[in-house]
Amino acid sequence: MQIEVNNVTYTYNKKRFDEFEALKGISLKIDKGEFVALVGKTGSGKSTLIQTFNGLILPTSGYVKVDDFIVTGDKKLKRQLLKKESKEVQILNKKKAYLLRKKVGMVFQFPEYQLFADTILKDVMFGPLNFKVEENLAKEKSINALKSVGIDESYFERNPFELSGGEKRRVAIAGILASEPDILILDEPTAGLDPNGKKEIMNLIKDIHKEGKTIILVTHDMDVVMDYVDKIFVLNDGKLLEETTPNILFNKENILDYSLEIPTFYKFKNLLKKYGFCKDLSKINEFNELIDIICEDKND
C-alpha cells in the first residue's frame, strides 16, 4: 500500500462562524504504480484530500500514510502511530518531513502561476535544489525533465513569461518532475487547454505513469478519465461514494445521480440506444469496437 488514507476528516476555519467540514471520514488505499482519478462535483473535497497527501493540509482527525510518512494534525495520534514504527521511520518523520514533498509531487490547477525565475532552466532547477540535490545533478535532472515534457534545448535560457500558455504549463510540470517524485498528483491538468494541448499533456502523464510512478488525477473531464484512468474514486460531500473502474461507473443506470459529466463515448452509446439501435452495447467500451459493431449492423 503506497498511500493509505484512514478515516480522515478536515475542517476549515475550525471554531469560527464560517466553519466548514470539507472531509467527513474518508478511507481509501492507492497502490504503487496505479493510475487513479478522484472525481466528484465542485466542493466535494477532492482538492482538500489531495493536499493531505503531501502534508499541505494536516487532517483534523485520522491519518494519511504515504510509504513511511505519517500525515496528521492530531498530535496524540501521531505519537501513538510513531511509537509502533522503527527508529529510522521516527527520525524520517520528525527531522526529514520535507522529503514527503519530494516523494509526492503536486501539480496544482493552472501551475503556470508558480513560475518565477528568469530562465526556464533555473525555474525547473529550483525544486531539486530545495531538496538538497547537488547543483550539477539538479541541472541534469532538470534537463531530463524538460526534455521529457517536450521543451527544446533552445528554450532553456529563455524567460518563462515569454512562453505560450501550454508551454508554461509544461515547464511547470517539468518543475515538479525534476524532483523525481514517486507519486504525481495533478489537479485539473487539462483545464483551459485546447484539444491538442490536452492530448499532449495527457500523453505526457501516461508516459510518466509507464515509468512506474503512481498518478493521482483530479478532474472534471470524464473523457480523460475514460481514456487514461484505471481506477476511480467518486467523492461526494466529503465522503467516499464509490471505488470503481471507468467502465463500471459509466455503464451504470443511475450515473446521473453522481452529477458527473458523461463521456462523449457513453453519450453516443446512449443516443444509439435511445433511437433503437438493436445490438447489445453493454459490453462495448471502446470506440473501435463500437465502430466495428455499427459496420456489422450496416452489412446485415
Binding site: 499541505l56 514533498r101 503536486m106 508558480q114
Partner: peptide
C-alpha cells in the same frame, strides 16, 4: 487567495 495558492505550489516544490 492567489498568494495562498502560489504558496502551496511553491511549498510542494520544497520551499519552507
Amino acid at each position: 487567495e492567489q498568494a495562498n495558492r502560489i504558496m502551496k505550489a511553491q511549498k510542494s516544490r520544497g520551499v519552507d
